[in-house]
Amino acid sequence: MFRPLHQLVPLTIIFAIAVTAFVVGRMYLVPETFGEYGHYRADAVGEVASQEIAYAGYQVCYDCHDDIYDEKMESNHSGVSCEVCHGPAAAHTEAPDEVTPDIPHGRSDCVLCHGYNPSRPSGFPQILPELHNTGKPCMVCHNPHAPVLDHAPTECSACHRKISSQKMVSHHALLECSQCHTVAEGHRTNPASVRADKPESKDVCGSCHDKGAESSRGIPRVDVETHNARYLCWDCHYPHQPEVVR
């Protein structure tokens, strides 16, 4: 006798068992907080938030290092957080004596920001590390917590880099700047209002280059009186690279 449900009965039973197993299994296996706020495990948020902190934040540093903090806040580095240079210091705030943060001494850290790179925004202070006081640690001259020098640089080349690099390769390489320029004391600390003086007469050049001057034999001589008398020397010779004649 044909029973139309004959084949379907066992299939239905199997199907029902599978669906029940799925539904029941789901009840047990889905994490408890899943779906509380959305299609995710709500507990995961707390787990992410419980991650350990490595950078303490500059405010914490103030608690103990208020002197340095205050100094820095007045300087051009006021926006540079302590841990930029000293590295992550949360561990130090927990155990100040056991864990001490880095104190970078060399040049490599400063150069990361201040090394010349044409892609950096113009106006950002940059140096050419291979020319700028090569080999000297930055901290010899600059206090990282107040990096702009409060005393005059001892070398003229610190500011007059272009002139010094030209002079360096010229016949005048061995001349001190003071050979021709008298530098007033105020110029070093206040260069814009107190200017260094420049030679005004041909005698300054003549003291070496005049035919009668008492100087080494190799120096080129002219009769300063008659040599293109209508012009001053530096109208044609650039004193920092004098061999160029216009």
Binding site: V48, S81, C113
Partner: peptide
């Protein structure tokens, strides 16, 4: 990146923002 979720929920800045020297 989590925006340093563990920091910002405690009122700290993300580490990258904390150390950015130029804002």
């Amino acid at each position: 990146c989590t925006f340093c979720y563990h920091r910002i929920t405690k009122g700290l800045l993300p580490a990258c923002v904390e150390v950015c020297p130029t804002g």
